[in-house]
């Protein structure tokens, strides 16, 4: 049986006796990075094709399943070991390559737009806290006779904070329209931004099940329930939406569940297909709520 193994410095064709054939990559940073990039993109290298010409091989990487038999658990692969030094490649070179690749990948990942949304949503919540704190202080202070100039600093700060809150809200609205139009249309930009912040990104939000979306922001209550029993939470930040907080108590849980299901679908559309389906979801949701009401009246009769 023949095995194909590709490392960062070359491709090797081996059998139980050892390495039978090999093609080393050019020992140059650019050339090596080029090949690593291809491997990361799930492509098959020309060296690999050349090496296996007409032989049937067993491979460990799924990337190579089209040119060989894929068997990731084959114990041969943890027996054979190629040392880069034996072929004129130094460890320092590997260090350099991985540093460079990690840096590039990091920069693209950190440029993601949802990271900005997360920071903005969190900053807005911070500002709200500060505003509440300051207005509480003002209220208490004003209970005793106070000359205007003494409270001026607090007053001034509070109005600045409120102004900045407005700016930030507008900015979030604008960015959310662009990044997640479906979520924004369904729940509004602020709740949408908080959901993205709590889940850690639009893609992660899209991969969560609807039941998780339903209680995002109610972690404390959820874990209290898991540890000590009692009642599980019915809603997290989506409670801030009038559809839930204006509903009668006994309907909130049901509506939260249906609502979360639609938000989850909206998130998937925003993250992956980019289709606009919010109107459709909205109609469906209203229909479901209507059905629920009908059943409720029927039961009463």
């Amino acid at each position: 049986m023949m095995y194909l193994i590709t490392t960062w410095f070359g491709s090797f064709l081996c059998d139980e006796q050892g390495i039978q054939k090999k093609i080393l990559f050019p020992c140059e940073e650019k050339e090596l990075l080029n090949r690593i990039q291809k491997i990361q993109n799930n492509e098959i290298l020309s060296e690999e094709k050349k090496l296996i010409k007409n032989t049937t091989v067993t491979v460990q990487e799924k990337r190579l399943q089209h040119i060989g038999t894929w068997d990731s658990k084959n114990s041969f692969f943890i027996q054979i070991h190629m040392k880069p030094e034996d072929y004129g490649f130094s460890r320092e070179l590997l260090h350099q390559l991985s540093m460079k690749l990690a840096k590039e990948k990091m920069d693209t990942q950190l440029q993601a737009e949802d990271l900005q949304i997360i920071q903005m949503a969190d900053a807005l919540d911070d500002l709200i806290q500060i505003a509440n704190l300051l207005s509480e202080r003002l209220e208490r202070w004003l209970l005793i006779p106070t000359p205007e100039e003494k409270i001026q600093p607090v007053h001034h700060t509070l109005s600045t904070v409120k102004e900045e809150m407005n700016h930030l809200e507008q900015q979030i609205e604008k960015d959310m329209q662009h990044l997640a139009p479906n979520i924004t249309m369904l729940v509004g930009s602020l709740i949408g931004a908080r959901l993205i912040s709590l889940s850690g990104g639009i893609e992660r939000l899209a991969m969560f099940p609807a039941s998780t979306v339903q209680i995002l922001g109610a972690e404390k209550a959820l874990f209290r329930f898991k540890k000590e029993g009692g009642k599980p939470p019915k809603h997290g930040v989506i409670f801030q939406h009038p559809l839930i907080n204006r509903a009668p108590r006994d309907e909130r849980g049901k509506i939260a569940r249906m609502f979360a299901a639609k938000i989850s679908i909206a998130a998937k559309a925003d993250a992956f297909t980019k289709r606009l389906i919010a109107d459709e979801l909205r109609t469906n949701l209203e229909k479901r709520i209507h059905e629920m009401h009908e059943q409720k009246t029927k039961k009463k009769q």
């Binding site: 590997l94 990690a102 990942q109």
Partner: peptide
């Protein structure tokens, strides 16, 4: 050798 990858998918850092 720092690798910005997900340990859930060990095959992705196979070449390193």
């Amino acid at each position: 050798a720092p690798l910005l990858m997900d340990a859930n998918h060990p095959q992705r850092y196979k070449s390193f």
